Structure formats: structure tokens, C-alpha cells
Simulated scan of single mutants.
Amino acid sequence: MLKSVKRLWQFAQTVLGIIFRHPVTGVSVVPILPDGQIILVRRRDNGKWALPGGMVDWGEDIPTAMRRELLEETGLELVKMGRLVGVYSAPDRDSRIHSICILVEAEVQGTVKIQDELEISEVKAFSRESIPSKDNLSHDYARQIQDYLEGRTTLA
């Protein structure tokens, strides 16, 4: 009996290791308003600014995840996808989990209204010159925003 329980536990550990030891795919959006301002969201978990985005749901493609996350976090609608800014995969880019983030520029419109108040505390438009400093940006968003502003396409 003890051997079979031990084998079952080893099997469970192996399966869980396979499932949970793979990066999770996420999306982030550089939302550009018609006046050229960039929308950022303030995260509730750390009080820092970030680009809107999140995990891609099962059965969802990247454009659909972008539209959903943008709407949930800002209330804005995606009008037109722009360029692929980058793919960010460093294991330490997010302290919570190893995630791969696909960053895409997008033209947006609508009225700002936070849908996901558990995750987001504020939504604000910034000119390129007034984007918060690196210390006030969450995760690796300073790099992502810099890559966008400098016109780079990054695979990191």
C-alpha cells in the first residue's frame, strides 16, 4: 500500500512538473489614442504603472486576447493593430511566474472605464514625454515602452 501511494505521488509530481514548468503566454498592448497619447494602467498589486495586458486564455488567439484585456483594463476598444513591438521571455521579467509577453501597438478609441477593478486602480493617458520613470513602472514595462518609443522590434 505504501509503495503504491509513493508511486502515485511520484507520478503526480511528474505530471504537475510538466504542466507547471512551462511559461505562460501573455499579451500587452501599447494603446495609442487618436491624439497620440499612450494609455497606461496602475496595477493594484504593486501600485506601479503598466501597459494593459494579461494572459491568453485557453482557446483564444493573440488578437482576441489583446481586445479582451484592453477592454477589461481600460474600457477602450481596439481600432487597428499596429506593429509587433516585441516578444519578451526572460524568466525573471515577472516575479510571479515565468511568462512570455507579446507586445503589440494598437490604435484605440472609446471612453476610459476600468472593468477589472480587482486588478487595476487607475487608467491614465500620457504624452511620450510624461511617461512615468522606470522606478514607477511594473515588471519589464520600462524596457517594453523604450523599445516601442525607439521603434525597435525586440526578441528577448
Rank of each mutant, 00 (worst) to 15 (best):
A142M: 08
L51E: 04
E73Y: 05
P52V: 01
R42K: 09
R152M: 13
Q13T: 01
L16S: 11
K134H: 12
T14R: 04
R152F: 15
N46Q: 06
L16A: 09
D92L: 05
K134N: 13
K80A: 10
R7N: 01
R67P: 04
T25V: 14
A106W: 06
V41Q: 10
S121G: 00
K6P: 00
R83W: 02
R83D: 03
D135Q: 08
Q37G: 05
V108K: 00
Q146F: 10
G17N: 04
F126G: 07
G54V: 02
S121I: 00
R67G: 04
R96Y: 13
S133A: 14
N46I: 03
G47Y: 01
L40C: 05
V5P: 01
K80Q: 12
E105H: 06
R93Y: 10
R44L: 01
R96N: 14
V24T: 15
L40E: 09
V56Y: 06
L149G: 07
G54W: 02
H22P: 01
G53Q: 08
I62T: 13
A90L: 12
D57G: 09
M66H: 14
I18K: 09
M55V: 13
M55W: 06
D45N: 10
G26F: 04
T74Y: 07
A65F: 04
I145M: 11
D61M: 03
V27D: 05
C101A: 13
L16K: 11
V87R: 10
W49D: 09
D57Y: 10
Q10S: 00
V123I: 00
G75F: 03
G151H: 06
H22G: 05
C101D: 15
V41G: 07
F126E: 11
E60V: 06
R43V: 00
L137W: 12
T154L: 09
L118N: 14
G53S: 09
Q10Y: 00
L137Q: 11
D135T: 07
L78T: 14
W49P: 05
W9L: 02
S138Q: 11
T25H: 13
R44G: 03
A156W: 11
I62N: 11
D61L: 04
V15D: 01
Q144A: 15
V29N: 05
D135H: 05
C101H: 13
I131V: 09
T74I: 02
A90D: 15
D94K: 12
D135A: 09
L149Q: 06
A142I: 04
M1S: 11
Q10E: 00
Y148H: 14
V104A: 08
A65K: 02
Y148P: 10
L33Q: 12
G53W: 05
Q146T: 15
V87D: 04
E117R: 04
L76H: 07
